[in-house]
Amino acid sequence: MVAIIDYDAGNTCSVMNALRRLDADFMLTNDKESILSADKVLFPGVGHATQAMNALKSKGLDEVITAVKNPLLGICIGMQLMCDFSVEGNTRCLGIVDAIVQKFVPLNHDEFQKVPHMGWNGIVHSGDALFTDVAESSYVYYVHSYFVESNECTIAETDYNHPYAAAIKKDNFYGVQFHAEKSGKVGEQILQNFLNL
């Protein structure tokens, strides 16, 4: 059973649709026991870091997430919230991964430096099990204005103005900045790999 963390800050619909296409059993929940006993936990999210953290805290989910022992995958802002700190609203996050979430700086007159970083970009990965059967430089879908700096937990990078962490891993905690649930066949492979962990 996969638990999708429900905290009013996720586009959980897309994640649920992706899991349905993979024939995975899942539940959308904010119940502590259900999350802690699930085989896999998905932690999606869109929106503002401060609001998302506040939503987690108001439901006591910040402490539940850090207590998860089975594989957990944070997607987009879910991954960002796993870090120490985000400059978005100067938000203290969950502190699972020792990294800072920074903002992309837009530069005019160069189409590759617009913000948000929106669209399909390539990943270079280090061969972690999360990327089994995912070819080098595969394209995945991004929509974000903030990014996790490359750090010792980085297991994949993407280059946008500069390389940054496309995916991170610390013990049982995984995070992907891209929207695996909307990244075509490549994204489905990555989600399946996570379910296979």
């Binding site: 619909c13 897309s14 649709n17 296409r21 879908y141 929207h179 649930e181 909307k182 990244s183 075509g184």
Partner: peptide, 11 residues
């Protein structure tokens, strides 16, 4: 919109 979302894996 819901039916499309069930079918496709792109944004």
């Amino acid at each position: 919109v819901r039916k499309v979302g069930e079918q496709i894996n792109i944004p």
